[in-house]
Design a protein around this nucleic acid. Structure first.
Length: 222
DNA sequence: GCGACAG
DNA sequence: ATCTTGTCGC
Protein backbone atom coordinates (compact mmCIF):
# COMPACT_ATOMS: atom_id res chain seq x y z
CA UNK A 1 0.00 0.00 0.00
CA UNK A 2 2.93 2.33 0.53
CA UNK A 3 4.26 2.62 -3.01
CA UNK A 4 1.97 2.52 -6.01
CA UNK A 5 4.64 2.73 -8.68
CA UNK A 6 7.92 0.90 -8.83
CA UNK A 7 11.00 3.03 -8.40
CA UNK A 8 12.74 3.54 -11.71
CA UNK A 9 16.32 4.79 -11.81
CA UNK A 10 15.94 6.20 -15.31
CA UNK A 11 12.92 8.24 -14.27
CA UNK A 12 14.72 9.42 -11.16
CA UNK A 13 17.63 10.59 -13.29
CA UNK A 14 15.20 12.42 -15.56
CA UNK A 15 13.67 14.10 -12.54
CA UNK A 16 17.12 15.13 -11.34
CA UNK A 17 17.91 16.69 -14.72
CA UNK A 18 14.68 18.66 -14.58
CA UNK A 19 15.18 19.80 -11.00
CA UNK A 20 18.79 20.72 -11.74
CA UNK A 21 17.69 23.17 -14.44
CA UNK A 22 15.53 24.95 -11.90
CA UNK A 23 18.24 25.47 -9.28
CA UNK A 24 18.94 29.14 -8.60
CA UNK A 25 22.60 29.62 -7.66
CA UNK A 26 22.21 33.29 -6.73
CA UNK A 27 21.04 34.82 -3.46
CA UNK A 28 17.26 35.03 -3.55
CA UNK A 29 16.45 34.77 0.11
CA UNK A 30 14.64 36.85 2.73
CA UNK A 31 16.65 39.47 4.56
CA UNK A 32 16.84 39.39 7.40
CA UNK A 33 16.46 35.67 7.93
CA UNK A 34 14.28 34.89 10.93
CA UNK A 35 13.63 31.16 11.06
CA UNK A 36 15.85 28.42 9.71
CA UNK A 37 15.15 24.71 9.56
CA UNK A 38 17.69 21.95 10.21
CA UNK A 39 16.91 18.59 8.56
CA UNK A 40 18.30 15.14 9.23
CA UNK A 41 17.24 11.50 9.18
CA UNK A 42 18.03 8.44 11.28
CA UNK A 43 17.08 4.80 10.85
CA UNK A 44 15.82 2.11 13.19
CA UNK A 45 14.42 -1.33 12.46
CA UNK A 46 13.87 -0.57 8.80
CA UNK A 47 12.12 2.70 9.56
CA UNK A 48 13.27 6.21 8.74
CA UNK A 49 12.95 8.92 11.35
CA UNK A 50 12.97 12.29 9.60
CA UNK A 51 13.54 15.31 11.82
CA UNK A 52 12.91 19.00 11.21
CA UNK A 53 14.10 21.57 13.74
CA UNK A 54 13.14 25.24 13.65
CA UNK A 55 15.71 27.67 15.00
CA UNK A 56 15.57 31.40 15.50
CA UNK A 57 18.47 32.94 13.59
CA UNK A 58 19.06 35.57 16.27
CA UNK A 59 19.59 33.21 19.20
CA UNK A 60 20.13 29.92 17.36
CA UNK A 61 17.76 28.46 19.92
CA UNK A 62 15.19 25.79 19.12
CA UNK A 63 11.70 27.12 18.45
CA UNK A 64 10.13 23.74 17.74
CA UNK A 65 10.86 20.40 16.15
CA UNK A 66 8.98 17.55 14.52
CA UNK A 67 9.65 13.92 13.67
CA UNK A 68 8.08 11.81 10.98
CA UNK A 69 8.49 8.03 11.04
CA UNK A 70 7.85 5.96 7.93
CA UNK A 71 9.16 3.13 5.81
CA UNK A 72 11.87 4.22 3.35
CA UNK A 73 10.53 3.94 -0.19
CA UNK A 74 13.81 2.70 -1.65
CA UNK A 75 17.16 1.44 -0.38
CA UNK A 76 20.11 3.79 -0.15
CA UNK A 77 21.64 4.35 -3.56
CA UNK A 78 24.52 6.84 -3.80
CA UNK A 79 23.46 9.89 -5.86
CA UNK A 80 19.77 9.05 -5.30
CA UNK A 81 19.59 9.84 -1.59
CA UNK A 82 16.82 12.40 -2.11
CA UNK A 83 14.42 9.75 -3.38
CA UNK A 84 14.91 7.86 -0.15
CA UNK A 85 14.80 10.71 2.37
CA UNK A 86 13.11 13.76 0.87
CA UNK A 87 9.51 12.54 1.21
CA UNK A 88 9.93 11.87 4.93
CA UNK A 89 11.75 15.15 5.48
CA UNK A 90 8.96 17.04 3.71
CA UNK A 91 6.43 15.32 5.95
CA UNK A 92 8.40 16.46 9.00
CA UNK A 93 8.56 20.04 7.70
CA UNK A 94 4.78 20.02 7.19
CA UNK A 95 4.31 19.32 10.88
CA UNK A 96 5.99 22.58 11.86
CA UNK A 97 3.59 25.32 12.88
CA UNK A 98 5.68 28.06 11.27
CA UNK A 99 7.28 28.28 7.87
CA UNK A 100 11.10 28.43 7.77
CA UNK A 101 12.95 31.00 5.66
CA UNK A 102 15.69 28.55 4.72
CA UNK A 103 16.51 24.84 4.94
CA UNK A 104 19.83 23.42 6.12
CA UNK A 105 19.94 19.87 4.82
CA UNK A 106 22.20 17.03 5.92
CA UNK A 107 23.76 16.09 2.57
CA UNK A 108 25.02 17.81 -0.57
CA UNK A 109 23.19 20.24 -2.79
CA UNK A 110 24.91 21.25 -6.03
CA UNK A 111 28.02 19.25 -5.08
CA UNK A 112 26.58 16.13 -6.66
CA UNK A 113 27.65 14.18 -9.77
CA UNK A 114 24.54 15.41 -11.58
CA UNK A 115 24.42 18.69 -9.64
CA UNK A 116 21.21 17.79 -7.88
CA UNK A 117 21.77 16.51 -4.35
CA UNK A 118 19.09 16.29 -1.70
CA UNK A 119 19.51 19.89 -0.55
CA UNK A 120 18.81 21.19 -4.05
CA UNK A 121 16.07 18.63 -4.57
CA UNK A 122 14.20 19.82 -1.47
CA UNK A 123 14.86 23.49 -2.15
CA UNK A 124 13.49 23.38 -5.67
CA UNK A 125 10.50 21.17 -4.88
CA UNK A 126 9.50 23.39 -1.95
CA UNK A 127 10.67 26.61 -3.64
CA UNK A 128 12.65 27.40 -0.52
CA UNK A 129 16.22 28.67 -0.09
CA UNK A 130 18.39 25.75 0.97
CA UNK A 131 21.98 24.84 1.83
CA UNK A 132 23.66 21.43 1.78
CA UNK A 133 25.91 20.45 4.69
CA UNK A 134 27.68 17.09 4.32
CA UNK A 135 30.32 15.30 6.34
CA UNK A 136 31.94 13.57 3.39
CA UNK A 137 32.68 14.43 -0.22
CA UNK A 138 30.54 12.73 -2.84
CA UNK A 139 32.43 14.05 -5.84
CA UNK A 140 35.07 16.63 -6.64
CA UNK A 141 38.43 17.59 -5.09
CA UNK A 142 39.32 20.40 -2.67
CA UNK A 143 41.71 22.86 -4.33
CA UNK A 144 44.40 25.10 -2.90
CA UNK A 145 44.77 26.07 0.71
CA UNK A 146 42.04 27.32 3.00
CA UNK A 147 41.53 31.07 3.24
CA UNK A 148 39.13 32.28 5.90
CA UNK A 149 38.42 28.68 6.89
CA UNK A 150 37.42 27.33 3.49
CA UNK A 151 38.58 26.29 0.05
CA UNK A 152 36.66 25.38 -3.08
CA UNK A 153 35.79 21.84 -4.13
CA UNK A 154 36.18 21.44 -7.88
CA UNK A 155 34.66 18.80 -10.14
CA UNK A 156 35.22 18.70 -13.89
CA UNK A 157 36.68 22.19 -13.83
CA UNK A 158 33.74 23.67 -11.96
CA UNK A 159 33.50 24.92 -8.38
CA UNK A 160 30.67 22.88 -6.93
CA UNK A 161 31.03 23.50 -3.21
CA UNK A 162 33.36 24.28 -0.35
CA UNK A 163 35.41 22.37 2.17
CA UNK A 164 34.87 24.27 5.42
CA UNK A 165 37.03 24.05 8.52
CA UNK A 166 34.45 24.82 11.18
CA UNK A 167 36.53 23.63 14.16
CA UNK A 168 40.24 23.39 14.80
CA UNK A 169 41.40 19.84 15.31
CA UNK A 170 38.33 18.39 13.61
CA UNK A 171 37.64 17.17 10.11
CA UNK A 172 36.15 19.74 7.74
CA UNK A 173 32.58 19.68 6.44
CA UNK A 174 31.30 20.19 2.90
CA UNK A 175 28.94 23.02 2.07
CA UNK A 176 27.15 23.63 -1.19
CA UNK A 177 24.34 25.63 -2.70
CA UNK A 178 20.97 24.00 -2.36
CA UNK A 179 18.70 26.55 -3.97
CA UNK A 180 18.48 30.36 -4.00
CA UNK A 181 21.70 30.73 -1.98
CA UNK A 182 25.12 31.46 -3.53
CA UNK A 183 28.12 29.43 -2.41
CA UNK A 184 29.87 32.38 -0.68
CA UNK A 185 26.67 33.17 1.21
CA UNK A 186 26.13 29.52 2.11
CA UNK A 187 29.64 29.28 3.55
CA UNK A 188 29.27 32.58 5.38
CA UNK A 189 25.96 31.55 6.94
CA UNK A 190 27.16 28.09 7.93
CA UNK A 191 30.18 29.59 9.68
CA UNK A 192 27.89 32.03 11.50
CA UNK A 193 25.84 29.11 12.74
CA UNK A 194 28.74 27.18 14.25
CA UNK A 195 28.73 27.09 18.04
CA UNK A 196 31.66 25.06 19.25
CA UNK A 197 30.92 21.92 17.21
CA UNK A 198 31.96 20.58 13.82
CA UNK A 199 28.41 20.84 12.49
CA UNK A 200 26.46 24.12 12.41
CA UNK A 201 23.59 24.31 14.92
CA UNK A 202 20.70 23.54 12.55
CA UNK A 203 22.28 20.30 11.36
CA UNK A 204 23.69 19.36 14.74
CA UNK A 205 20.37 19.82 16.52
CA UNK A 206 18.38 18.03 13.83
CA UNK A 207 20.73 15.10 14.21
CA UNK A 208 20.39 15.28 17.99
CA UNK A 209 16.58 15.24 18.02
CA UNK A 210 16.55 12.49 15.43
CA UNK A 211 18.81 10.36 17.62
CA UNK A 212 16.57 10.99 20.62
CA UNK A 213 13.56 9.85 18.59
CA UNK A 214 15.39 6.75 17.40
CA UNK A 215 15.79 5.56 20.97
CA UNK A 216 12.03 5.73 21.47
CA UNK A 217 11.34 3.45 18.52
CA UNK A 218 10.74 -0.14 19.56
CA UNK A 219 11.54 -2.92 17.14
CA UNK A 220 8.93 -5.61 16.45
CA UNK A 221 9.35 -9.24 15.54
CA UNK A 222 8.89 -10.71 12.08
C1' DG B 1 36.02 -3.17 -17.22
C1' DC B 2 37.08 -1.37 -12.28
C1' DG B 3 36.61 1.29 -8.28
C1' DA B 4 34.16 4.99 -5.66
C1' DC B 5 30.14 6.30 -3.73
C1' DA B 6 26.14 11.97 0.66
C1' DG B 7 22.94 9.27 4.35
C1' DA C 1 22.66 5.49 8.23
C1' DT C 2 23.03 1.07 11.47
C1' DC C 3 25.21 -3.10 13.94
C1' DT C 4 28.43 -2.81 18.52
C1' DT C 5 32.36 -2.65 24.13
C1' DG C 6 35.45 -0.78 25.66
C1' DT C 7 38.53 2.79 25.31
C1' DC C 8 41.61 6.94 24.16
C1' DG C 9 41.49 11.94 24.33
C1' DC C 10 39.84 16.90 24.99
Amino acid sequence: MSSYIKFCVKRARRAQRNLRERIIMEDVLPSPLKLICGLDASYKCGQIIATAVLLSVDSLEVVEWANHISKPPIPYIPTLLAFREAPALMAAIRQLSKEPDLLVVDGHGYAHPFRCGIASHLGVVLNKPSIGVAKKILCGTPQGSAVRKWRPVVDKGEIIGAEVYTMEGEKPIYVSTGHRVSLPTAVKLVLEWVRGHRLPEPTRLAHHYSRVAVKEVKCRES
